[in-house]
Nucleic acid binder design. Structure first.
Length: 280
DNA sequence: CCGCTGGCCTGCGAGC
DNA sequence: TGCTCGCAGGCCAGCG
């Protein structure tokens, strides 16, 4: 599910929770099996009676803010999702890791099949901002208007120069919220071949790429994100962004624009898809 | 500091 | 039809 646009859709889905008072945050037994959920149940007692003030998105992170100082940093990993419990007797999902009970329904369940997600306490908002993955984040790909100048600036980082653009583009220090699907789709929209070295991209191409990123990510938000196999966001609604993908997952199929076969390559251990005719 | 490899997990489906 | 195996939207530790 979760690249920046899917995390943004999740944030919107959770919006009705804002203003509610926490009754109890409970970690499931299952959560204790995994190091990334190593938080102790007793540490979460602090949140009893706290009012949820806001849920912010920063790149692919959600930051849960309360009226007291502590915050919860939450990452969906590869398979994390939030489910709002609207009925009393609704049963828990099989990979539930954390439950937030409010004084009134709905309650919220964080479910994470592959256990790559995060749900951890930080002592204050200031401290979470100093946490490296947040502090070092690049521009937010969903920022409006798209921060072109800073994008170009970060793009100039010397250590990117001799790397392939397809490998660089998923770096959260360049564009926070970018992931493997929208990387491929943004490059397709900008008609740039993912194997191009960053230093060979002209300023015009870099700008076009920036615009393509913004367009691609926002279109995904507007479609409620991409839904694949069992992943959906949020529960009950399906995203439809996958329907307009030009290249992602389409290896072996004909390019919709020129008929050339879409190919798949591996960069940084991740799949990249493109049309070698349209993307030069 | 940098880049690369492999590891963390479960579930799905392509292909034999 | 059933099984295996590769692969999956993310990230990081450890190594040289």
């Amino acid at each position: 599910m979760p690249e920046g646009p899917e995390v943004e859709c999740t944030r919107r889905y959770l919006h009705p929770l804002i203003g509610k008072t926490v009754k109890k945050i409970q970690l499931t037994e299952l959560s204790q099996k995994y190091p990334k959920y190593a938080g102790k149940q007793q540490d979460f007692y602090w949140f009893d009676g706290q009012q949820l003030i806001d849920i912010e998105r920063s790149g692919k992170f959600l930051i849960w803010r309360f009226d007291g100082e502590k915050v919860i940093l939450n990452h969906l990993g590869m398979s994390g999702k939030w489910i709002l419990l609207k009925k009393n007797n609704q049963s828990l999902t099989s990979h539930a890791k954390a439950l937030i009970y409010f004084e009134k329904q709905p309650h919220a369940i964080f479910d994470d099949i592959r256990n790559f997600g995060q749900f951890k306490i930080f002592e204050s908002y200031k401290i979470v901002l100093k946490y490296d993955p947040i502090r070092k984040m690049g521009i937010d790909g969903l920022a409006k208007p798209f921060p072109m100048d800073e994008f170009l600036l970060r793009f100039n980082k010397p250590n990117y120069a001799s790397k392939e653009i397809g490998a660089v583009l998923v770096d959260q220090k360049l564009v926070a919220g970018m992931g493997n699907i929208y990387k491929a789709e943004s490059l397709a929209l900008a008609k740039i071949n993912p194997t191009r070295l960053v230093k060979t991209l002209t300023k015009k191409e870099r700008k076009e790429l920036g615009l393509a990123i913004s367009k691609t990510l926002w279109k995904a938000v507007d479609c409620n994100g991409s839904t694949f196999s069992t992943f959906q966001i949020p529960t009950g609604q399906e995203g439809s962004a996958q329907h307009w993908h030009k290249v992602y997952g389409k290896h072996g199929e004909a390019c919709q624009d020129c008929g050339t076969e879409i190919i798949r390559i591996v960069q940084n251990g991740r799949s990249t898809f493109f049309c070698s005719e349209c993307q030069k």
